[in-house]
Computed example of a mutant assay.
Amino acid sequence: MSNITAADVKKLRDQTGAGMMDCKKALVEADGDYEKAIEILRTKGQKLSLKRAEREAKEGVVIAKVSDDKKSGVVIRLSCETDFVAKNQDFINFADQIASIALENLPKTKDELGALPLGPITIQDKIIEQVGVIGEKIELADYELLESELVVPYIHMGYRAGVIVGLNQDGGSVEEAGKDVAMQVAAMRPIALDKDAVDPSIIEKEIEIGKEQARQEGKPEQIIEKIALGKLNKFFQENTLLNQGFVKDNGSTVKQYLQSVDKNLTITDFKHLMLG
């Protein structure tokens, strides 16, 4: 059996983040073979990941970042089981590292992001490895990409929510407006940019809800449809970003606020991820 030194254990711990005893056991099992010990720790993570696959991972962190030229942005949600892990700086740094890799490569999907390299292995394999290190379920739960003339990020409530907002212009005043709108998204949680972007199935459901409410209120059948459409318009005002009342000035909508900055300024798209 190879002589396992404290320096060997520390080297493996620095590489993997696993506990000192786990590193020592892996080195002993691998008879001092460093690469084999890493594989043993990864296998442990995979086994633990399978055991915890059905567990809920509602805690975690959301990271929103933009490129240096501010024309691309990403937001990711890295989930875990407990608030204790979510608040750990190493976990936050890990999520930030994944977001940085996303920003460098601009993958289109979560699966593409997971397949990108993080050191000698993929992001997804590193997540599995961290399951063994931390001892609870960890997953890359969500990922969104946005590209526009200007993209502005916002992280809300200690990494519990993240927003990226795309605008059709750039510049200092436009960026400030973008920050205001990003905070609006985090606070008011719009479901779409405007009424044209709302899923038709949601519109159909809201119309049916409006009709049923009108009937329960005893309204005549011949005006049920009109009442339902009126309720739908109110739904659009409350739930679509450009039509929402601007939180910093209830006298204007978000669309009107943007036009007060520049008559042609508007939001091209937004992405919002949150825990839960």
Rank of each mutant, 00 (worst) to 15 (best):
G17I: 06
G17A: 11
A18F: 08
G19E: 03
G19M: 12
M20T: 12
M20P: 04
M20W: 01
D22T: 02
C23R: 05
C23Q: 04
C23M: 05
K24R: 15
K24V: 09
K24G: 01
K24Q: 12
K25M: 09
K25W: 04
A26S: 06
A26G: 03
V28P: 09
E29D: 09
E29L: 10
A30N: 05
A30W: 02
A30K: 06
A30Q: 08
D31M: 02
D31V: 06
G32M: 11
D33G: 08
D33T: 05
D33L: 08
D33K: 14
Y34F: 15
Y34C: 05
Y34I: 10
E35R: 06
E35L: 07
E35N: 04
K36Y: 02
K36A: 15
K36D: 05
A37I: 03
I38W: 03
I38H: 06
E39P: 09
E39H: 10
I40E: 11
I40W: 08
L41N: 12
L41M: 08
R42F: 11
R42E: 02
T43V: 11
T43G: 15
T43P: 05
T43W: 00
K44Q: 13
K44S: 13
G45S: 13
G45E: 10
Q46N: 14
K47R: 14
K47W: 00
K47A: 14
L48V: 13
L48T: 13
L48R: 15
S49E: 09
S49P: 10
S49C: 12
L50V: 13
L50C: 09
L50W: 00
R52M: 12
R52I: 01
A53F: 01
E54V: 02
E54D: 14
E54P: 04
E54L: 08
R55C: 07
E56Q: 13
E56K: 14
E56N: 13
E56D: 13
E56H: 10
A57K: 09
A57N: 11
A57R: 12
K58H: 11
K58C: 09
K58W: 00
K58Y: 00
E59I: 05
G60C: 06
V61H: 03
V61C: 10
V62P: 03
V62M: 04
V62A: 10
I63T: 08
I63Q: 06
A64H: 05
A64C: 09
A64Q: 01
K65D: 08
K65W: 00
V66I: 05
S67F: 04
D68M: 10
D69T: 07
D69Y: 04
K70Y: 00
K70N: 13
K70I: 01
K70V: 03
